[in-house]
């Protein structure tokens, strides 16, 4: 089996590390930030590279630095979580290594020495199987796609890697969002459409989302109407989500919206119009007033 290098310089991705361990038969080299070696080891990394670096601003320079190391390690397979930062860094590494790179994969499998990568495109409406044609094969993998498998593994070797190069872009500050889980990684999404009717309606949905520990989503029409901010927009021109449960309130189910959420585990639709298209794509439909149901859920100790 070939070694797989998993690049997690900004935080270990346990699901991806576990998947890489399974694909490579335990031959995983993991690059993780300081303090996350134990986590990487628990997820099956056989070799660990612990990165010591100041906060990174010039990702292009960092990518060139990593590309040089990867040449040295001669790893034929390089994976990284498809986070905003790694989706910037991996393409630059791929350029330097002349390696084929596939973005945001949701399935990976080995066929001999080839890594077959499956990724959705165009919302979720196209699924493509892709392989690299280059000696080095690379992919970014959608976070949360694979379940973490923690277990007892032999003590891995730990190597330190120090990065301190002059940066052309400097990181001045970082401000975390209030309210926790980003929508794209939420396990439950509570979303509203035009049927929610107002900003006040969305405030109610937000309270419900808070109660359920869910992210708040919205259809494009609701965002256009000013009911919810753009960062909540799910669909073609917004964010693609695949939570375990997608709870759609007053969303009619335009194809553009379906493109952004049809990969969800379970879909529950609440709409007063029994003919709303969303019901065709839902595992469970509730025909009725969204607000009455939301009130019920807010009042009751349902969990």
């Amino acid at each position: 089996m070939k070694e797989i290098l998993v690049l997690c310089p900004f935080g270990a991705d346990p699901g991806l590390l576990s998947k890489a361990a399974a694909l490579s038969g335990g031959e995983v080299r993991a690059l993780v930030p300081q303090g996350e070696t134990a986590l990487a080891a628990a997820c099956g990394a056989a070799r660990i590279v612990e990165l010591q670096a100041a906060p990174i601003g010039d990702e292009a320079r960092f990518a060139a630095f990593l590309a040089e190391r990867i040449r040295g390690w001669s790893c034929p397979l390089v994976l990284a979580p498809a986070t905003v930062q790694m989706r910037n860094i991996m393409p630059m590494i791929a350029w330097h290594l002349k390696a084929g790179l596939t973005a945001d994969c949701t399935q990976l499998r080995m066929e001999g020495e080839l890594l077959i990568q499956t990724r959705p495109a165009f919302g979720n409406s196209l699924m493509a199987d892709i392989r690299a044609l280059s000696p080095i094969q690379m992919a970014t993998v959608r976070p949360g796609t694979f379940p973490p498998q923690r277990g007892e593994h032999p003590q891995p070797g730990v190597e330190r890697l120090v990065y301190c190069e002059e940066e052309r872009v400097t990181l001045l500050s970082y401000r975390a969002f209030a309210g926790g889980t980003p929508l794209s990684q939420a396990q439950i999404v509570v979303a509203g459409g035009m049927g929610v009717g107002s900003r006040e309606g969305f405030q109610k949905l937000e309270r419900l989302a808070d109660k359920l520990g869910a992210g708040l989503g919205a259809s494009r029409t609701a965002v256009d109407a000013g009911f919810a901010p753009y960062r909540c927009q799910v669909g073609m021109t917004g964010i693609t989500v695949c939570p375990r449960l997608y709870l759609a309130f007053g969303i009619s189910g335009a194809v553009q919206h379906l493109a952004g959420m049809s990969g969800s585990g379970k879909i529950v639709a609440v709409n007063s119009d029994p003919k709303a298209p969303i019901f065709d794509y839902a595992d469970y439909g509730i025909v009725g007033d969204w607000e009455a149901l939301a009130d019920k859920l807010l009042q009751e100790e349902i969990l």
Binding site: S198, R199, V223, D224, A225, G226
Partner: peptide
């Protein structure tokens, strides 16, 4: 105000 303003990047915040 409701159909074009939001599309053009201005929305009437209070409705």
């Amino acid at each position: 105000m409701t159909q074009k303003y939001p599309e053009w990047g201005f929305e009437i915040a209070a409705g």
